[in-house]
Protein backbone atom coordinates (compact mmCIF):
# COMPACT_ATOMS: atom_id res chain seq x y z
CA UNK A 1 0.00 0.00 0.00
CA UNK A 2 1.39 3.42 -0.94
CA UNK A 3 1.84 6.20 1.67
CA UNK A 4 -0.70 8.27 -0.26
CA UNK A 5 -3.32 5.53 0.08
CA UNK A 6 -2.49 5.19 3.78
CA UNK A 7 -3.06 8.93 4.23
CA UNK A 8 -6.40 8.69 2.38
CA UNK A 9 -7.47 5.76 4.56
CA UNK A 10 -6.73 7.84 7.65
CA UNK A 11 -8.84 10.70 6.30
CA UNK A 12 -11.64 8.29 5.34
CA UNK A 13 -11.66 6.93 8.88
CA UNK A 14 -11.81 10.38 10.48
CA UNK A 15 -14.49 11.57 8.04
CA UNK A 16 -16.60 8.43 8.58
CA UNK A 17 -16.19 8.88 12.35
CA UNK A 18 -17.71 12.36 12.05
CA UNK A 19 -20.66 10.91 10.11
CA UNK A 20 -21.04 8.08 12.63
CA UNK A 21 -21.06 10.49 15.57
CA UNK A 22 -24.14 12.15 14.07
CA UNK A 23 -25.78 8.88 12.99
CA UNK A 24 -25.30 7.18 16.37
CA UNK A 25 -26.78 10.21 18.15
CA UNK A 26 -29.86 10.21 15.89
CA UNK A 27 -30.16 6.41 16.16
CA UNK A 28 -30.00 6.46 19.99
CA UNK A 29 -32.46 9.35 20.21
CA UNK A 30 -34.82 7.42 17.93
CA UNK A 31 -34.53 4.29 20.11
CA UNK A 32 -35.27 6.25 23.30
CA UNK A 33 -38.24 7.94 21.61
CA UNK A 34 -39.51 4.72 20.00
CA UNK A 35 -39.52 2.52 23.12
CA UNK A 36 -41.83 4.90 24.99
CA UNK A 37 -44.98 2.84 25.55
CA UNK A 38 -43.53 -0.44 24.24
CA UNK A 39 -41.95 -1.57 21.01
CA UNK A 40 -43.50 -3.66 18.25
CA UNK A 41 -42.30 -4.80 14.82
CA UNK A 42 -45.40 -3.21 13.31
CA UNK A 43 -44.50 0.15 14.84
CA UNK A 44 -40.93 0.00 13.50
CA UNK A 45 -42.04 -1.05 10.02
CA UNK A 46 -44.72 1.64 10.10
CA UNK A 47 -41.97 4.21 10.52
CA UNK A 48 -39.48 2.83 8.02
CA UNK A 49 -41.53 1.23 5.22
CA UNK A 50 -41.55 3.45 2.14
CA UNK A 51 -39.86 6.27 4.04
CA UNK A 52 -37.09 7.63 1.84
CA UNK A 53 -35.64 9.81 4.60
CA UNK A 54 -35.01 6.79 6.85
CA UNK A 55 -33.69 4.85 3.85
CA UNK A 56 -31.16 7.60 3.14
CA UNK A 57 -30.24 7.97 6.81
CA UNK A 58 -29.64 4.27 7.47
CA UNK A 59 -27.85 3.79 4.13
CA UNK A 60 -25.44 6.55 5.14
CA UNK A 61 -25.06 4.94 8.58
CA UNK A 62 -24.27 1.52 7.10
CA UNK A 63 -21.80 2.87 4.55
CA UNK A 64 -20.00 5.00 7.15
CA UNK A 65 -19.67 1.94 9.43
CA UNK A 66 -18.43 -0.16 6.50
CA UNK A 67 -15.69 2.39 5.85
CA UNK A 68 -14.82 3.09 9.48
CA UNK A 69 -14.61 -0.35 11.07
CA UNK A 70 -12.25 -2.11 8.62
CA UNK A 71 -9.74 0.79 8.72
CA UNK A 72 -9.69 0.60 12.50
CA UNK A 73 -9.28 -3.18 12.36
CA UNK A 74 -6.36 -2.67 9.98
CA UNK A 75 -4.36 -1.05 12.80
CA UNK A 76 -5.60 -3.64 15.31
CA UNK A 77 -4.41 -6.47 12.99
CA UNK A 78 -0.96 -4.90 12.79
CA UNK A 79 -0.55 -3.92 16.42
CA UNK A 80 -2.08 -6.95 18.11
CA UNK A 81 -1.65 -9.76 15.59
CA UNK A 82 1.38 -8.46 13.63
CA UNK A 83 -0.70 -9.15 10.50
CA UNK A 84 0.23 -6.78 7.69
CA UNK A 85 0.56 -6.72 3.90
CA UNK A 86 -1.78 -7.59 1.06
CA UNK A 87 -3.44 -10.57 2.77
CA UNK A 88 -4.64 -8.34 5.63
CA UNK A 89 -5.84 -5.58 3.31
CA UNK A 90 -7.71 -8.00 1.02
CA UNK A 91 -9.34 -9.70 4.04
CA UNK A 92 -10.43 -6.30 5.37
CA UNK A 93 -11.74 -5.19 1.97
CA UNK A 94 -13.90 -8.35 1.97
CA UNK A 95 -14.98 -7.55 5.54
CA UNK A 96 -15.95 -4.03 4.43
CA UNK A 97 -17.97 -5.47 1.53
CA UNK A 98 -19.68 -7.94 3.89
CA UNK A 99 -20.60 -5.17 6.33
CA UNK A 100 -22.00 -3.04 3.53
CA UNK A 101 -23.95 -5.93 2.01
CA UNK A 102 -25.42 -7.20 5.30
CA UNK A 103 -26.20 -3.66 6.44
CA UNK A 104 -27.87 -2.59 3.20
CA UNK A 105 -29.83 -5.86 3.15
CA UNK A 106 -31.22 -4.97 6.58
CA UNK A 107 -31.96 -1.39 5.52
CA UNK A 108 -33.93 -2.57 2.45
CA UNK A 109 -35.69 -5.27 4.49
CA UNK A 110 -37.37 -2.62 6.66
CA UNK A 111 -37.91 -0.21 3.74
CA UNK A 112 -39.76 -2.50 1.31
Amino acid sequence: MTPRLEMLLWIAQRASAAVLALCVAVHLATIIYAVQGGLTAAEILGRTRGNHAWLAFYSLFVLAASVHAPIGLRAVCLEWLRWRGASRDIALALFAAALAWLGMRAVFAVFT
Binding site: P3, E6, M7, W10
Partner: peptide, 12 residues
Protein backbone atom coordinates in the same frame (compact mmCIF):
# COMPACT_ATOMS: atom_id res chain seq x y z
CA UNK B 1 5.48 15.05 4.70
CA UNK B 2 5.48 11.88 2.57
CA UNK B 3 8.20 10.34 4.74
CA UNK B 4 6.47 11.29 8.00
CA UNK B 5 2.96 10.14 6.98
CA UNK B 6 1.23 6.81 6.62
CA UNK B 7 1.38 3.54 8.58
CA UNK B 8 4.95 4.06 9.78
CA UNK B 9 4.42 7.76 10.41
CA UNK B 10 2.16 10.27 12.10
CA UNK B 11 -1.07 8.51 11.11
CA UNK B 12 -0.28 5.56 13.37
Amino acid sequence: LRAAAGDAGCHS
